[in-house]
């Protein structure tokens, strides 16, 4: 009974994560401007990774690989936003008429 509940929770997390990834990819294709597309990809990435990895931990049960999965999750949450930030900063630096597209904070 307990195992069944865990499996259901895990599957729900996994499917929700896949849905988030799908919407991220959709946003990447659908949106026009670079920063919007990057935002969709970055946000979808973070939430999708969280949901998929938590779902995997629920499905697999608590063990050493689950702890390693948590470490992977930590690493990805640390690096993926930084990478998105760098891409966005590069876009702001290189586009001369960025003010036409959006508001930019002065540094």
């Amino acid at each position: 009974m307990f195992d069944g509940i865990l499996t259901v929770i895990g599957l729900a997390f996994l499917l929700f994560g896949l849905f988030v990834f799908f919407s991220a990819v959709l946003g990447l294709y659908r949106l026009d401007y670079v920063l919007n597309r990057m935002h969709a990809a970055a946000v979808g990435d973070a939430l999708g990774i969280f949901c998929v990895l938590v779902g995997l931990i629920f499905l697999h049960g608590w063990s050493l690989p689950a702890a390693k999965t948590l470490l992977v999750f930590l690493f990805l949450w640390l690096t993926s936003p930084v990478a998105s930030h760098l891409i966005a900063e590069m876009e702001v630096f290189t586009i001369s008429d960025i003010r036409k597209e959006c508001e930019v904070e002065e540094r």
């Binding site: 690493f75 640390l78 690096t79 930084v82 930030h85 760098l86 900063e89 540094r107």
Partner: peptide, 14 residues
Amino acid sequence: AHPDLILRRAAWVL
């Protein structure tokens, strides 16, 4: 002149 603070902090941890 413009050190990227976010990248530096992340690299400092990583």
